[in-house]
């Protein structure tokens, strides 16, 4: 892997995220920016995908359980060549393929429609189980939020993944510590996530979710685990890369004003 090329890609994704959310005048910048580096490694290094043939049977699958981070996914898909970059300007606009939350039936490269929190791990489990039934070795990735882990269904799905030994599944938690109403541990503590995931039967890895090499290494280690599903707890910063957005719950679901976007793009230049 070429780290500096990936870093440039991550930066470009962040610029696209700011631009599209500003153009839409709505959307979720904070959790999109915290997830950007993880998506960069998946889409530009680790995942086996064919942008020219999005439904290729041999592909690895990705489920964005935290569907509100759609801008990060759309940026990755556009820059990877699934659809023209110009289309990003249509985010959240009527008639656009780029819905506020991703839709499999509209957007090329989106394997699963998401948006209702707590459901992505279950869908990823279904995909992983289906691949196992067919004896296939495609990998399945899902990204969820730490606040999202408050949804009970997440734990139903985690139980399922361990019970059926879905070692083809990698669950990545974007552990940015914030949700709409404030700090996750103030609103409804989900920590200690590592101990909970371990108790649920997962191979648990903790990494810096903004270090591209660490992310890549963790994904490789997940592939080596033969008897358990892997959970990567990626410690991240909500709003990463834009100084005034970092660690601010207020930027969960607010679009920057044009002058704020200008400053953000300067920082990301």
């Amino acid at each position: 892997m070429n780290i500096s090329a990936l870093e440039n890609t991550a930066k470009e994704m962040r610029r696209e995220i700011i631009k599209m959310i500003t153009a839409a005048a709505s959307g979720h910048p904070g959790g999109s920016l915290s997830a950007t580096d993880i998506l960069t490694v998946l889409y530009f290094d680790k995942m086996n995908i064919r942008p020219e043939d999005p439904t290729w049977e041999g592909r690895d699958y990705f489920v964005l359980s935290k569907g509100h981070a759609a801008p990060a996914l759309y940026a990755a898909l556009a820059l990877r060549g699934f659809f023209p970059k110009e289309e990003l300007a249509g985010l959240r606009k009527i008639g656009s393929r780029l819905q506020g939350h991703p839709v499999s039936t509209k957007c090329p490269g989106v394997d699963v429609s998401t948006g209702s929190l707590g459901q992505g791990v279950s869908v990823a489990c279904g995909i992983a189980k289906g691949l196992k039934i067919d004896g296939k070795d495609n990998r399945v990735y899902t990204l969820l939020g730490d606040g999202e882990c408050q949804e009970g269904q997440v734990w139903e799905a985690l139980m399922f993944a361990a019970h059926y030994k879905l070692n083809n599944l990698t669950v990545i938690i974007d552990h940015n510590h914030l949700q709409i109403d404030g700090n996750v541990d103030d609103v409804m503590a989900t920590s200690p996530l590592d101990q909970k995931l371990d108790a649920f039967g997962f191979n648990v890895l903790q990494i810096n979710g903004h270090n591209l090499e660490s992310i890549a290494t963790a994904i490789d280690r997940a592939k080596e685990c033969t008897h358990k599903p892997t959970a990567i707890i990626a410690n991240t910063i909500k709003g990463r890369g834009v100084s005034f957005m970092e660690n601010q719950a207020g930027w969960h679901g607010s679009a920057p004003k044009p002058e704020e976007a200008e400053q953000a793009l300067q920082e990301l230049a």
Binding site: S122, V123, G126, A128, G130, F160
Partner: peptide, 18 residues
């Protein structure tokens, strides 16, 4: 699926995806 209907329906969606 065990006693977990929400996970059952959503896992079905994943199986249908493949």
């Amino acid at each position: 699926m065990g006693i977990a209907e929400q996970n059952m329906i959503t896992t079905a969606a994943g199986l249908a995806t493949v």
